[in-house]
């Protein structure tokens, strides 16, 4: 596994907390393993948009990784609803190439960024760093991943 310099929250030096939203357990696990190598923590998981909204309220994560296609409520709608409630929400859409227009729609509705499936850790790392902006800090001293 590649090693990354740990990304921490700049305000308290705590791990960045993620909410994973994807109807595939596999995809969630996969993302979880990747963000753990960034020193991140999984705050919650959701298998559909509905749950994503309640999980967001419950866990108040730093980053949401949101799949586009899901049963019950699609990622776009969920992203829109979350952003409406929490304008500060950092939602990164995760999707395959075929859904570009949906990504655009999601970005127009408040998603912050997107990554393409299959997710490349180094790409996701850059995206997260960007999306966190000054709320994120790279921990130089500690070994990556913790």
């Amino acid at each position: 596994m590649e090693q990354f310099a740990s990304l921490k929250r700049s305000k308290d030096g705590q791990p960045v907390r993620y909410l994973m939203v994807d109807d595939s357990v596999f995809a969630r696990k996969n993302l979880a393993r990747i963000v753990e190598t960034f020193g991140g923590q999984v705050a919650g998981e959701a298998g559909d948009g509905m749950t994503a909204i309640t999980e967001y309220d419950r866990t108040n994560p730093d980053i949401v990784l949101m799949d586009i296609t899901m049963p019950q409520m699609e990622g776009i709608e969920a992203a829109e609803k979350i952003v409406a409630q929490h304008p500060e929400a950092r939602i990164v859409m995760v999707s395959s190439v075929g859904y570009q227009e949906n990504i655009v729609a999601a970005l127009q509705r408040g998603a912050r960024h997107f990554v393409q499936k299959p997710v490349k850790p180094e790409v996701l790392y850059e995206v997260i760093k960007y999306v966190l902006g000054e709320d994120g800090a790279v921990a130089h001293a500690a070994g990556a991943g913790a």
């Binding site: 595939s24 596999f26 995809a27 996969n30 296609t69 395959s96 499936k117 299959p118």
Partner: peptide, 8 residues
């Protein structure tokens, strides 16, 4: 989903 998982 199959596509994405398989690719991963």
């Amino acid at each position: 989903t199959i596509k994405g998982d398989a690719a991963a």
